Simulated scan of single mutants.
Amino acid sequence: MPPTSSPAIEDYLKTVYAHTEWQPDAITPKALADKLGIAPSSVTEMVKKMAAQGLISHVPYGPLRLTDAGRERALAVVRRHRLIETWLVREMGYGWDEVHDEAEILEHAISDRLLEAIDERLGRPRRDPHGDAIPSAAGEVASEPFVLLSDAPVAHVGRVIRISDRDPEVLRELEGRGIRPGVEVEVTDAAGRLVTLQAAGEAGELTREVASAIWVTA
Rank of each mutant, 00 (worst) to 15 (best):
A211P: 07
Q53V: 00
A142T: 11
P145W: 03
A31G: 12
G123H: 07
H130Y: 06
S164C: 13
V99S: 02
E107W: 01
L66G: 04
P168V: 11
D167A: 10
S143M: 06
S6A: 12
G204E: 01
H58G: 00
V147K: 09
A142R: 11
A69S: 13
V195Y: 04
A39H: 14
I84N: 05
G139C: 03
R79Q: 10
R126Y: 01
I9T: 15
A218G: 08
V160L: 03
E85C: 10
L197W: 07
G192C: 08
A213C: 11
K35S: 15
A155I: 00
S42W: 00
G176L: 04
P168A: 10
L13M: 10
G62W: 02
E116L: 11
L148T: 03
D101H: 14
R80Q: 02
Y17K: 07
T44D: 11
Y12D: 02
G93R: 08
E10A: 15
P153I: 01
E104L: 12
S57L: 06
R121P: 05
E98C: 06
A218Q: 07
V185K: 05
D165L: 00
H156D: 00
G201P: 07
E205T: 12
K30Y: 13
D167P: 05
R79W: 08
L75D: 05
A52R: 11
P153C: 04
G54R: 06
E186N: 01
E184R: 14
E120V: 12
I110T: 08
V43A: 08
W87R: 02
A39M: 03
A117G: 07
Y61G: 00
A8D: 10
Q23I: 00
A18Q: 13
M92H: 11
K35E: 13
A203F: 13
E186I: 06
H100T: 15
E202Q: 13
V141D: 01
Y17A: 10
H81M: 03
R79P: 12
I56C: 02
L32W: 03
D189V: 00
D165K: 10
R73Q: 14
P60L: 07
E72S: 14
V160R: 02
E10V: 03
K14H: 11
D189C: 09
G123C: 06
P135W: 01
K35A: 15
D165R: 11
R126Q: 14
H58T: 06
V157Q: 13
A33M: 08
A203K: 13
V195I: 15
G158N: 07
D151F: 01
W215K: 09
P63C: 02
P29S: 09
Q23W: 04
G139Q: 00
A213T: 12
R172K: 15
W22Q: 09
A109I: 14
G176S: 10
L66F: 02
P125M: 05
H100M: 04
G123I: 07
A211L: 03
